[in-house]
């Protein structure tokens, strides 16, 4: 499996937007979703986020695995851990919980409150993922650096992020090569047995040579940048960005969601909502 940002949404309406829009939208939605606790309001946010996501025209078959992983694994663990937490949070903390059933061997109470809180957390993650996908799939990987620079990040840090994104496919290939080389020596990357320490130790023959080799190879990059006088003056970026009225419109829409969410929170209108069909 090769790790890389894939530009699947190339040519879509969203990919034609200024890349700063694709970074600002999830940032704003993070703020908005953190203000909301009511699952009904978060479901409205999910609908809006889905509208935004659909503008990226990301082919379903190409991201099916990611979505299934997100829905199944993250959803399962969110629900499982939400249940263990007992749902005694927020407005539910002081009230008597509605016990639906008890898991026999452990005596854990499964409450309507716990399921409601877990569902709320799950819906929030889905909303964030919907606006996060376009960053990975509808933004040219080469635009990360310049977009962050134009958002106010210092040149050196923008270059650092740019380099990180560019290094990912290289590092990923190096990882595969190292696994193959170690497999020839008898290493079994598919072994699943053992606890955390065993698993960590089992990965050492892969990531130690990979890490040390990559860092040793960085000297060429450092020399190349130093020879081009990196960091001695103001940097000029090849790609020019222009924020158009449509970009303002999208950012403005997300800004409106943030303001609305904050207003609901401050007014006390976004408390945890007990799913009614659980307590009938």
């Amino acid at each position: 499996m090769r790790a890389a940002f894939r530009y699947l949404g190339r040519g879509s309406w969203l990919s034609g937007r200024d890349p700063r829009v694709l970074i600002l939208a999830p940032l704003l939605l993070v703020v908005a979703s953190s203000q909301l606790s009511d699952i009904r309001q978060l479901l409205v946010v999910v609908v809006l986020a889905y509208g935004y996501y659909s503008l990226a025209r990301i082919p379903w078959h190409s991201v099916r695995a990611q979505w299934l992983y997100l829905l199944a694994v993250i959803g399962f663990y969110s629900l499982l851990n939400g249940l263990i937490a007992g749902g005694r949070v927020g407005v539910f903390a002081e009230s008597e919980p509605h016990v639906l059933w008890t898991i026999p061997p452990f005596g854990w109470d499964i409450t309507a409150e716990a399921i409601s809180v877990a569902a709320t957390r799950f819906v929030r993650v889905i909303a964030l993922a919907l606006v996060g996908f376009p960053i990975a799939f509808a933004m040219a990987p080469g635009d990360f650096g310049v977009a962050l620079r134009r958002l106010g990040l210092p040149d050196r840090l923008a270059v650092m992020v740019d380099l990180t994104v560019r290094f990912i496919p290289t590092i990923s290939d190096e990882f595969s090569d190292t696994v193959d080389a170690q497999r020839v020596r008898g290493y079994d990357p598919t072994a699943r047995r053992g606890g955390p320490i065993t698993r960590i130790r089992r990965m050492a023959p892969v990531f130690v040579p990979m890490t040390v080799g990559s860092l040793a190879g960085a000297e060429d990059t450092i020399d190349a940048m130093d020879l081009r006088a990196f960091g001695t003056g103001r940097r000029v970026w090849y790609r020019a960005l222009h924020f158009e009225w449509m970009d303002w419109l999208v950012v403005g829409a997300f800004g409106t969601v943030v303001v609305t969410a904050m207003a609901l929170n401050w007014a006390g209108l976004s408390e945890h909502y007990l799913l009614p069909f659980l307590v009938r």
Binding site: V159, M160, T170, I171, F207, M210, T211, T221, M225, F230
Partner: peptide, 15 residues
């Protein structure tokens, strides 16, 4: 924050 800091941090972050 030197060139070396930037590149080593970028490689570390990528790994």
């Amino acid at each position: 924050i030197t060139t070396r800091t930037i590149v080593y941090a970028a490689i570390g972050a990528a790994i």
